[in-house]
Structures are given as structure tokens and as C-alpha cells.
Design a protein around this nucleic acid. Structure first.
Length: 99
DNA sequence: CTAATGACGCAGA
DNA sequence: ATCTGCGCCATTA
């Protein structure tokens, strides 16, 4: 467990309800402006062990970036259940729901 | 040790 | 909007 990982977990826990952040944004907040990929991998492996709002993390284009269609669908539903508008293609208006 | 991989990001075309 | 190439870096083979 690196310090970066802990920082990332804390940052994600602080994302307010109904808002979203990008991987790169989280990485920068955690002190590593180039750690987007690491953030992605952390979420990929830690989502079931920690109670994290992992669904509030999308890519910088404001789009759901999960390759696994099943999980992508789940994330979309979770966001919608929080009042976030998500298109069929998985797009979110970051100018509204972004940080 | 090298090489491939990927829930990413950004600049170009 | 879509696609490509490059950079990045921990993890895995």
C-alpha cells in the first residue's frame, strides 16, 4: 500500500454525491499528475474491498471508460440513481457534474 | 533484465 | 465526434 494509493482512496471518498471526477484529476489531487493509469488500476482492484464511490470516476472526456460493458452499465445506473445525467453512450456533462 | 498491457490524457488530423 | 500516435508507469509474464 503506497502513500499515493492511500491519498487516492481518501480523495475518492471525498467526492460529493452526484458529482464526478476524472482519473487524472484524482491523480493530481493525490500529488501525481501523471498517475491516471495507476488510479484506474487501483479502482479496478479495490472497488469490492473498500466502500468507494468508484462510479464517480470517469475519464477526462467526461465519458465512462470501463471496457467491461457489464460494469460500465452498472456505473451508469449508479450515476443516474444519484441524479447525474448519463447518455446511452456513457457521456456525462462535466461542466455540470464535474468538480 | 525486456516486453506487453491498460477503468488514462493530450495533441493532431 | 472519431481515430491515431505518444507519453506515462505499476504490474504481470
Amino acid at each position: 500500500m503506497t502513500q499515493f494509493t492511500e491519498e487516492v482512496l481518501v480523495i475518492i471518498k471525498r467526492i460529493p454525491y452526484g458529482r464526478v471526477m476524472s482519473y487524472g484529476q484524482v491523480a493530481r489531487f493525490a500529488g501525481n499528475n501523471r498517475g491516471a493509469r495507476q488510479v484506474a488500476r487501483i479502482l479496478h482492484s479495490m472497488t469490492e474491498k473498500y466502500e468507494l464511490p468508484w462510479h464517480r470516476i470517469i475519464n477526462s472526456k467526461g465519458r465512462i471508460s470501463i471496457t467491461d460493458a457489464r460494469y460500465a452499465a452498472i456505473q451508469r445506473e449508479l450515476l443516474i440513481s444519484e441524479g447525474v445525467e448519463v447518455s446511452e453512450e456513457g457521456y456525462v456533462d462535466i461542466s455540470i457534474y464535474g468538480i
